[in-house]
Amino acid sequence: MESHLTLRVDGEARSLTVDTRTTLLDALRDRLSVTSPKKGCDHGQCGACTVLLDGRRVLSCLILAVAHDGAQVTTAAGLAPEDGELHPLQRAFLDHDGFQCGYCTPGQICSAAGMLDEASAGHPSLVTPVADGDGRSDGHVRRGPAALGDDEIRERMSGNLCRCGAYVNIVAAIREVSAQ
């Protein structure tokens, strides 16, 4: 079964007809030639395909394109404010040498961008101390953005694997942007 849909990809409206079986990742890469998100495991275990879908980080390999007609998709290539400029996370990954082969990098950067927004919105992680953000009985939760420590960054980024093992520098890059 085929379906017609429109996606707004990195700020540009793109219309296409897809077989219902097409994942968002395959629609981006194979149909729209948007090759920034990478196909690593294709089973939701590595994070290389991470994009921002309507502003939230998700795994595009486990999402059916047909279910997201009209959605806004941001890839690592579309994060920069203008052509020729770099997003602070892109700059920091360069400055800190946050990669070796670079295959996981677009997913790392998209995931970090989504993660920093989540932290700013007061979303806890498994290692967030209760006292720092626990809800009170009146429903009030203290909101971020507190600078994230290394434990927080590692836990919140655990869905992005780097088989070159550039984790130390990835954490440093994200820590720098988190503190800005």
């Binding site: 939701g44 994070g47 991470t50 939230r56 980080r57 998700v58 795994l59 486990l62 999402i63 995931s111 989504g114 993660m115 989540e118 992680s125 498994l126 919140r156 980024m157 655990s158 869905g159 992005n160």
Partner: peptide
């Protein structure tokens, strides 16, 4: 404690 940030968002 479950999954990853990306998976929990979906």
């Amino acid at each position: 404690a479950g999954a990853s940030g990306q998976l929990r968002n979906a």
